[in-house]
Nucleic acid binder design. Sequence first.
DNA 1: CTATAACTTGAAACATGGTTCAAGTTTCAA
DNA 2: TTGAAACTTGAACCATGTTTCAAGTTATAG
Lengths: 212, 212
Amino acid sequence: MARTDPEIGPAPPATERGRRTRRKLLDAATAEFGERGFHEASIASITQRAGVALGSFYTYFGSKEAIFRDLVRDLSDGVRFAAAQRLAERDLGALDTERAALSAFLEFAREHKEIYRIIDEAEFVDPQSYRDHYEKTAERILGRLRIGAGAGELRDDLEEAHAWAIMGMNVFLGLRYAVWADEDNAADGAERAALAANSILAEGIGPRPKTS
Amino acid sequence: MARTDPEIGPAPPATERGRRTRRKLLDAATAEFGERGFHEASIASITQRAGVALGSFYTYFGSKEAIFRDLVRDLSDGVRFAAAQRLAERDLGALDTERAALSAFLEFAREHKEIYRIIDEAEFVDPQSYRDHYEKTAERILGRLRIGAGAGELRDDLEEAHAWAIMGMNVFLGLRYAVWADEDNAADGAERAALAANSILAEGIGPRPKTS
DNA sequence: CTATAACTTGAAACATGGTTCAAGTTTCAA
DNA sequence: TTGAAACTTGAACCATGTTTCAAGTTATAG
């Protein structure tokens, strides 16, 4: 669990004013990175959006990469937190939980395409955060699978690879039916995607036994 | 089917020498982009690897983006072609075909991590190629599913979303167990991944009927 | 109050690397 | 043989945008 990064940039803000400014920069950066991508984004534009002088940026972040890294970690935590909360609301069976998780994710991706994009771009800008994000997400999924297996609602031989498979399904369905969707049929597409995924999880793709 | 891009850059090489040089640049670019990513990569370094003068680059490609675009299309075609060939060798049942496809993909990704990376980075450098790649791939998968359904080996209600779900599984398993694998247990991990995916497709994740 | 730390400012320094170009060399058809 | 088109060359141009910095302002502890 040791921090890999020995170079720790600027100290955290000591005053309320400082924290506010830092937050403004982070929010501005979310918009900027989300709209233009990491490389197109400019620090000048971020500080402008934040209503802050260019130089102030370096009071809070050591570099363009640094703010991106912080951002990805923020967003990654936020996404997982939102999802967990959403699932905690109701107590569902194992398969329904997975369906709900995917639905929540699709809805979230539809509302916050920028976030989706930022996290994905981390694969190239800050690979470590990217790995961390998906590893943590896979762990969450695996945790749910284990609970389901314990309750006898799922197979009892599910392991890491199954969690990654499910995560991959979800991510690609999100890309196709949330991020790339035309706004018109977005909700509809998301619905079909969720059903398709769930039916695979429920019964696989093999031939259906004759309708009982 | 109209070409979206009216600006067509340099004309294709007219002589054998020209075609050779262009190919050298493309190969060098594969290595360069694969190792350093699009933005870290430099044209100077590409021409150096190719053993060609800097200026020659612009005889064949209009810009850094242009060569990247060409490259992605090349690689995308190559990957699909290799996969198709591999599957055509033997005539397998529908489920075994999917397993074979995933195995082939994992092996390929393990051998050519650069290619995997380049195609993925296209999401940010040249979104159109990225979409094209995955849309074509999903179509291939859907085609296989339809054949399987026609033969009564698969459910007959499989549609686009199912293909995307399967593709997502494959891509993420590839990321985790081929691209990120430590070389030691790579082959083993890939094997388990393929089994996990196939078991989901075969029977879902629901509880197993008591072992007959 | 007041001294010090925290924070703000924006112009200027700086680095990088994509792109152009004018001059040379090779190829090849007529 | 010869002239034009295809190709090669690498130095110089140039745009861009990150980072630094020294001077000013605001907050806060003693």
